[in-house]
């Protein structure tokens, strides 16, 4: 699902690379302030490896076809959006340079689509949804699913916007937006279901690791058997 070289013209590619650089700089500042410090770089590295590995899990759709997770909202819900942006940026960079997946000049575009649009739109929706749900850890998977559902078509529509600026051929934009939006809404449904199930299993086992569940954990109380006291 990565944009290759030549899909967008050179000025647009350079422009998105500049935007991506700015986003990464802001995420570095925010991640070091709120989500990680430089001591925890190994943790962020292993989260990046996790995102990369999670994309390798094939989810059968039926009729012999299968899809895979994008993982932008999954990462954002688990470790926070700024760290997720950094992890996805590294994953996309490693995929472009070591696996030839996604164009090297389109790296900025891919970071804008997945590291910026999918992560932050999805995380914003998740935050909004979790704010209106009851304050329990069990609300978190629903919020994550809502964010994942929106994140995929959001990234697709940002791509349509970029295509309008620097696309290779004149395609009627409303057709492109409808086709991309509808198709990616379907992909988003799959992403939402998988994110819901995965976050649900993590919240059940280790809710303390889930960034979005912070402040939603039941307060621990100290109980002393009466006959001891």
């Amino acid at each position: 699902m990565h944009v290759p070289d030549g899909f967008l013209d050179a000025p647009t590619s350079v422009g998105t690379a500049v935007v991506a650089g700015g986003v990464v700089a802001l995420s570095l500042a925010r991640a070091s302030r709120r989500e990680l410090d430089e001591r925890t770089a190994p943790l962020a590295g292993l989260v990046a490896v996790f995102v990369f590995a999670a994309q390798m899990v094939n989810f059968p759709v039926g009729a012999g076809t299968s899809g895979h997770l994008i993982g932008a909202v999954l990462a954002a819900v688990l470790v926070g959006p700024a760290t997720a942006t950094l992890c996805l940026t590294v994953v996309l960079g490693v995929q472009a340079f070591l696996f030839a997946d996604g164009g090297v000049t389109a790296l900025g575009t891919n970071v804008v689509l997945m590291g910026l649009a999918a992560v932050w739109v999805g995380y914003g929706v998740s935050r909004a949804v979790v704010a209106v749900l009851p304050t329990r850890p069990a609300s978190v998977p629903f919020a994550a699913a809502a964010g994942a559902l929106v994140s995929v078509p959001a990234a697709a529509l940002v791509f349509v916007g970029l295509y309008a600026v620097g696309g290779a051929a004149p395609i009627p934009l409303d057709t492109l937006a409808t086709a991309m939006g509808t198709w990616h809404l379907l992909i988003g449904v799959g992403e939402a279901v998988i994110t819901f199930l995965a976050v649900g299993s993590i919240v059940a086992a280790r809710p303390d690791l889930v960034h979005l569940a912070r402040g939603r954990m039941p307060a621990l109380e100290l109980r002393t058997p009466e006959h001891v006291a």
């Binding site: 990046a48 490896v49 590995a53």
Partner: peptide
């Protein structure tokens, strides 16, 4: 931080795979 994340990624990707 990006270099560190990338270095841990290439080091542990085969372990996690």
């Amino acid at each position: 931080p990006l270099v560190l994340i990338a270095s841990f990624m290439v080091r542990y990707v085969d372990v996690v795979a």
